[in-house]
Amino acid sequence: MAEQAARRTPILAPSAARPEAAISIAPMVPAARFALRLPEAAAKAIGSAAGFRLDMAINRSAAARDGRLAARLGPDEWLLHGPETASEAIARDVEAALAGRHFALVDIGHRNVAIAVAGAHARAVINGGCPLDLDDDAFPPGSATRTLLGKAEIVLLRPDEAPVFRIECWRSFAPYVLGLLEEVGREFAGA
């Protein structure tokens, strides 16, 4: 007896970002996500896999077609991103592209939760818990790195020119991360 596929219950209810606001802190909709591990030399040799660029500098990301994105978080580690519906296709394509190599592709689509932080005070709010320099010179568009926000580990991305930051964290840390951002952001809310 096959029941209808079970529905998702995300830990944070998604909401729409308002980049024009002084501060906007908005949980994002579920997405396809994979942790890709591949030896540094292999990444250099093949350059890309299934449309995901892999040979960028560490702590940089690159957008790919169809809303996909690869972020290099370490010498042999990438976070692959795409629309939720693309999950199976991404897995299939990457497996195929890397067949025969030493690699690991692990689905983390339910492990991670993303929150978009935008608005004029986005940096100030993130720097309320994150110790990194988020100035354009230090964290230019396309930056992506694992770091900390308060007592939670996060991955911080700035996918493009827009001053919109994406914070990814593990599912169970999401209420804390959202709570901390909102607490720090109160000062700017409605300002």
Partner: peptide, 15 residues
């Protein structure tokens, strides 16, 4: 700072 009450430590809750 903010590390008091519910934000003292992350409170991790399972699904």
């Amino acid at each position: 700072g903010s590390a008091r009450g519910a934000l003292f430590d992350p409170i991790r809750v399972a699904p």
